[in-house]
Amino acid sequence: MSTEAKSEVLARIRGALQDSPDAPQVRRAYRRTSGRPAAEIREMFEDRLVDYKATVHHENAATLPERIAELLGPSARYVIPEGLDRSWLPEDTIGRRVLVESRMEDAGTVLSVRDLNEVDAVVTSSTVSCAETGTIFLSGRPEEGRRAISLVPDHHICIVPAASIVELVPEALARVEPTAPITMISGPSATSDIELERVEGVHGPRRLDVILLT
């Protein structure tokens, strides 16, 4: 690391700013808090997700395991982060098995990327969701896990507790820890690189199921 380069770059910048420019005050006159009722916000969120070709399901604590079982299908190996509420999950069967993943080696399994590439699905919770843009935020909390587990498997089942849905981007960002590893997800991975024709599913999970949990 060259301190010489640093000093020179900073000196150049200071030289460039010798006119001491006056920057205007930043006015945050844009919308920062929502005035909409929760039901409307939820509806907006769902509308945006569908627009992105994610599949949306409405469940409560009692119906959730059955839904997850159905989405996984009869034979699946799926991974969950260690902090996920186990009461949300269906019982294991001969064909369907859960793998609990921990990021700390002493607390459970740490799956290699190749292991993750072999599992069929991942189930995680989420930190907060923004309705206006249809965006789900993951921030590495125990119920969300490290980033690789929600990335490598081809099918992501993401649980969004209804109380965690806000309308606006500023409201959502205010609810995540800035220094956590953050992933914002708005629909399944997509590309429009070939003649601008949108194709869902490139490198990220090609299937995204969002479960709104009330």
């Binding site: 206006e132 843009t133 490290r146 690789a148 800035p178 590893p181 953050i182 708005s186 399944p188 429009s192």
Partner: peptide, 24 residues
């Protein structure tokens, strides 16, 4: 995203701050 791809939000945005032990 609205100016760029004309989407309300791009599919993925990642943020990282230095090193997170056990993640990435």
């Amino acid at each position: 995203p609205r100016s760029s791809t004309g989407e309300r939000m791009n599919p993925y945005t990642s943020m990282w701050t230095g090193v997170t032990p056990g993640d990435g």
